[in-house]
């Protein structure tokens, strides 16, 4: 689910008196303006009006059918802006406004609304949905097996590398960056990544067994935050943890993302830098390559 994604609308061609009477009976609320034309007229209404909470209940139904078992409705707040007359055509809709990750699920915030016959919003509200992680059947890429292989959320490994002036000089020569050999250039963290170095390949076997045609892949993003520059003579211990394994649709197929962080510690154990390395692989889920 993505921000600004529209929730499929639910329409009621006409809110009937039967809807209203069934609702009144179900919640034991017999306020007569919902079924008695005279009582409604006495309150200045052109006819019986639909119960606000019934409209809220249909917003909940719309959200549930959109979720289709993928999650649960955690919160629904509605404001009843205008009455709808019995007999009116009603449209129920909504939009995703935010998606954030939480432990075990995503939190999806939505705006929801009810539009009356003339298109005016008669109810506006907000909803919170808890979305379960993608199912782990064989069609998916971000499987529990892959997450276990990379020890998602735990330390995956630690390696110690000495940074020499020669290493820095070689790196600078390769980039064509004529800076000093005493201070490592900004992206030197790349040379200290246990996965790029293939000192650690926790997921190779699981990835190799993915039964779909690979259509692309590579680094997606890199981020670094330094406490201080890396310098010649540093002995850096890199502690790697995978923080995210997830999949989503992309232009070149179904995309599998694996994101890892490296904490770069100096010989005294002080943090020198923290990096985030994002890698993506694309697959065509319609093309099977293995049994």
């Amino acid at each position: 689910m993505r921000v600004s994604e529209a929730i499929p609308t639910l329409t009621v061609d006409a809110a009937t008196l039967e809807h209203v009477v069934r609702w009144s009976a179900a919640i034991d609320d017999y306020t007569p303006i919902h079924f008695d034309p005279e009582a409604a007229a006495a309150r200045g209404m052109a006819g019986p009006v639909v119960n606000g909470p019934w409209k809220a209940a249909l917003l909940a139904t719309m959200l549930e059918s959109w979720l289709d078992g993928r999650g649960t409705l955690a919160r629904l707040d509605c404001r009843y802006r205008r009455p709808d007359l019995v007999g009116a055509a009603l449209t129920f809709g909504g939009t995703v406004t935010a998606v954030t990750a939480a432990t075990g699920h995503d939190v999806v915030e939505c705006d929801v609304w009810v539009a009356g016959a003339d298109g005016d919003k008669t109810v506006t509200g907000t909803a919170t949905v808890h979305l379960r992680p993608a199912s782990t059947d064989e069609e998916t890429l971000a499987t529990e097996r892959l997450k276990a292989a990379v020890r998602l959320g735990q330390e995956a490994g630690r390696f110690t590398y000495e940074v020499t002036a020669g290493d820095i000089a070689r790196f600078r020569a390769a980039v064509g960056d004529p800076g000093p050999d005493t201070v490592a250039p900004l992206t030197f963290f790349a040379a200290l990544d246990p996965v790029e170095r293939r000192d650690m390949l926790l997921d190779a076997e699981v990835l190799d067994e993915i039964p779909f045609a690979k259509t692309g892949g590579g680094n997606a993003f890199n981020e670094v935050e330094y406490e201080r520059p890396i310098r010649a003579g540093d002995v850096i211990t890199v502690v790697t943890s995978y923080t995210e394994v997830y999949e989503r649709d992309g232009g070149s197929g179904r995309l599998l993302f694996r994101v890892r962080t490296n904490d770069l510690l100096d010989a005294a154990g002080d943090l020198v830098a923290r990096t985030r390395m994002g890698h993506v692989m694309a697959y065509d889920l319609k093309r099977r390559v293995k049994a």
């Binding site: 980039v175 250039p185 900004l186 993003f221």
Partner: peptide, 23 residues
């Protein structure tokens, strides 16, 4: 990314340093 890093460090000179960088 290294080219962009070089762009930044040559611009800011030796009296500054890069704390955060993302690509």
């Amino acid at each position: 990314a290294a080219f962009l890093g070089q762009l930044v460090t040559e611009w800011c000179g030796p009296d500054a340093w890069v704390r955060r960088f993302s690509v």
